[in-house]
Every structure is written in structure tokens, then in C-alpha cells.
Amino acid sequence: MITLWFSIVVLAWVLFFVLEGFDFGVGLLGPLLGRDDHERGAVVRTIGPFWDGNEVWLVAAIGVTFAAFPAWYAALLSGLYLPVAALLLVLAVRGVALEFRGKGDGARWRRRCDAFLAVSSAAIVALWGALLAAFVRGLALGPDGSVRGSGPGRSLAPILTWESLVGAAAALFAAALLGATFLALRTTGPVRRRARDLARWLGTGGAAVLVVAGFGTGSRLVLAAAAVSLAAGMLARQGREALAFALTCVGVAGSVVAVLLAHGSVVLPSTLDASWSLTRAAAAATPSALSLLTAFGVVILPGVLAYQAYSYFVFRRRVASERVPS
């Protein structure tokens, strides 16, 4: 039961990072790939009908984590209080900028929203990267499962590490590649052309960096990421946009799974003493709560996936970025 629920938690986080990953990527690439108001409008329209439904995967992921592993949820969020608060604030800015963009009046209003969207999307991605690195590194968990430390730096310190810096850079790269391949797939005209070029350069350039890093650290995972990045770049160059996007999604999903499974059955390592680390079994809710969740989850989640797929089907048409002569 615990394994089943851990898999569902992993699934929810993977779906969030893949689906919102391209939303963030599109957001941060908006000003780069859309050269004027009209083109930037086209960029934003590619995610318009989807982003909110995608963001609910974050609600679902954190909700399922809370319900199935209350102690994990409690330790993670209280131990990373300030970075998570910052994350929520930039998420708010980004959601509002995206949703308010088309409701105001004039090009200046939209330009401002685009700027907020790009900056907040980039900040969200960087913060997530830093947070995921902190998940892997662990927190200063005491024997009672709560995070030790005092002073304002208590919850900031875990992300002020070089691992978190690397995590932030890697996340920005992944989101940009995801956004570029998504835009190449979802638009026509100049935005599509530029997105394809960017995906090509990002894919091959990123692969080069990752190969060096992979041999430097001897990590097979990083080498696998390099291969995915290179393949996505080459596919984008050949115009195989759907495949390039799908492959990037697989790469992101794989990275998230690797982060969540980094320590096996330990969900949150303690940096103070390995025996104080939080395990899946210790963090889990009771069997009665888990079986209740199973009854709901097994019925609801396939339904959610079905109607979300339906909404992607309804809005499957590419968004035109070229100007229609009037």
C-alpha cells in the first residue's frame, strides 16, 4: 500500500513537472521568441487553455503527499519555509500575469504582463531546481523528524548550496528546452521557426555541457540526460517536432523520478545523522487513510487524465503566429 501510494505521489509530481514545465518554459521564452505584441500573444495562447489544469497537478501532488505521507509534507515544507514562500509568491505573480494579460487594454499593458510572466516563470523554475537539489541533499532533521536550526537563515540555508545552484541551472535549461520544443510543435510561422532553432541549439549545446559533467562526475544519469538532450536537438533540427517534445518530456520525467528515488526508501535524508532520516514507512499515513485514498484515487485520477486529454484534443490546432493580411 505504501509503495502504491509512493508511486502515485511520484506520478503526480512527474505530471506536474512535465506539464507545468512546458508552461514555465513557454512563459520564460515569450519575450525571446515573440518579437512583437502579436507574436507574443500567439506564444501565450499555446498554453492559455491548459496552464490552469496543469497547475492543479501541483495542488494534487502536494495534497497527495500530505494525505499519504503527512510527516514528509510537514518536514519538507516547514524546513524549506522561506524558499517555498518565495515560490508561492512568484507562482501567484505568474498565474495572474498570464490570466490578466488578455483582459486589460493596450500593447503596453500586455508588454508589462509578458515581462512579469517571463521573469516569474524563470524564478519559479530556478527555485524548483534549487528545491529539488535540497530534497536530494536532505535537511537538518532531528530525531523527532522536525527540522533543526534557528535564525532567519534556518530555512534559506538548504538552498544556498552549490548543489542548489547547479539544480537551478539544470532546471532552467530543461524548462527552456521543454518550452522550445513545445512551441515548435504548437505554433506556425516565425515563432515556430525560432523555437525550432532554439531547441536545436539548446539541445546540442546542453548535451555538450552534460557530457563534460557526466564524465567529470562519473554519473550515468547525467550521461543519459546528455543523450536525451542531443537527440531532442537533432530531432528539432529535422523538423520532427512531436518526437523532440516527447523525448524532452521523457527526460524531465526521468529526472524527477531520479530525484524522488535518489535515496531508495528514504524520502528525506537527515544531514545531521543518517539514522534520523525520514523513511517512507515512517512518513506514511495509516492504512485506513491510505485505503480511503486508494478508493478515490483509482476512480478519480484516470477520469482526470481522460478529460484533460480531451481538452488537449479540443485545442489541438496549432496557433498561428504569422500576421494575416487584412
Binding site: F66, A74, S288, F296
Partner: peptide, 14 residues
């Protein structure tokens, strides 16, 4: 969390 968590999770999913 055992009591409170499922309500939040199910509200989100449902």
C-alpha cells in the same frame, strides 16, 4: 494529517 490530508487531496483530485 491522517484526517486532514485526505480532505485536501480529494478536494484537489475531485
Amino acid at each position: 494529517g491522517d484526517v486532514f490530508g485526505p480532505t485536501l487531496a480529494i478536494e484537489g483530485m475531485l
